[in-house]
Amino acid sequence: MKQNFTVRQGALDGVEAFLSVAQHRSFRKAAAELGVTPSAMSQAVRSLEARVGATLFIRTTRSVGLTEAGERFLARAKPAFEELVAAGELARELGQRPTGRLRLSVPPAVVPILLQPLIASFCRAYPEVEVEVSAREELVDLATEGFDAGIRLGQFIAADMVTVRLTPPFSLIVVGSPAYLTDRGRPERPDDLRGHACLRLRRSNGALAPWPLSSNGRAVEIAVSGPLIASDFLTVLGAAVDGVGLAQVPEPIAADLLAQGKLERVLEPFAPKVPGVFLYYPDRKQTMPKLRAFIDHVKSERARR
């Protein structure tokens, strides 16, 4: 049967006083150490003894000693109290300067082109911060899964998140390899995609993503078909380079391959604009120094470009 364990309110009251008296074997010296009066120290210990239900000290006019109950209480309470003090110091340190582990949830495609340069310069600037990057496509609940921040396309970020822009707006472009386009021809209009092998993405909710396009200034979504379904942009991009089919991807991740001639754009007049990529996190009031340092670093790096 499940049992509920709770710490009573005030259960730790008097423990520090007890430990100080046990160390000095003197109420007067313990009171001086903690900056209280001897009578206050005595009252704190008496209250603790009442809650424990046992006498912890043997008191005489000349000395203070521990009872058997006091010895047993000291053996368990001292290391536990020291652990609480150490935990408080660690939490205080994390709250006062950039240190500890910074956990980021990011899509795989942004790691090589956007995040790696930021991480490298940030780690050099803040060697006491340990950066952990979880690269996956699905959206996560930052608080539930213990992440400090995430990076996503702006249209996928919840309205209650605080955001920091990482890139300007860019286009979602349709690309294919020269070999594929020579063999299958170049689509000229969105309707032409029905005759092409289109590489598709499956969203984290299990649905197949249609291709968003812009037609006469109007946003449209085209249901495409093809030989490959993947969960991330890098996979469909690689398949497009290999000539498997056409892929629709964010322009920045295809820029190098376009410059190298490994891919070519098609349907350029119909490429929709998206808001860009953003760093996002829950609440300004809850921002720890490690995350604040990363945010400031991101802003500084953007200003230098």
Rank of each mutant, 00 (worst) to 15 (best):
Q3W: 01
N4S: 13
T6Q: 01
Q9V: 14
G14C: 10
V15F: 13
L19E: 08
V21C: 02
A22E: 03
A30S: 07
G35V: 07
V36E: 06
V36W: 01
S42N: 06
A44V: 07
A50M: 08
A50G: 07
L56Q: 03
F57R: 02
I58T: 07
R59S: 01
R62C: 04
V64N: 03
R72W: 07
L74K: 03
K78S: 15
A80C: 04
E82F: 00
E82G: 13
A86K: 11
E89R: 12
A91N: 11
R92N: 12
E93L: 12
R97C: 07
R101F: 01
L104E: 05
L104F: 08
V106R: 04
P108A: 12
A109Y: 15
A109D: 12
V110S: 10
L115C: 08
Q116D: 13
P117T: 02
A120E: 14
A125D: 06
E132C: 04
E138I: 06
L142R: 06
T144Y: 01
E145G: 05
D148W: 08
D148Q: 06
R152Q: 03
Q155R: 10
A158W: 15
V164N: 04
L172S: 11
I173A: 11
V175C: 08
V175F: 03
P178E: 10
L181R: 04
G185M: 07
D191Q: 05
R194L: 13
H196M: 15
W211I: 14
S215N: 05
G217I: 06
G217P: 13
I222R: 12
A223V: 14
S225L: 08
P227L: 09
L228E: 05
I229F: 02
L234K: 09
L234R: 13
L237C: 10
G238S: 12
G243A: 03
G245Q: 05
Q248Y: 01
V249Q: 09
D256E: 11
L263K: 05
R265L: 14
L267E: 00
P275L: 14
G276K: 04
V277S: 00
L279Y: 00
R284P: 02
R284H: 00
R284F: 00
R284V: 03
M288H: 05
A293D: 06
K299E: 15
A303E: 14
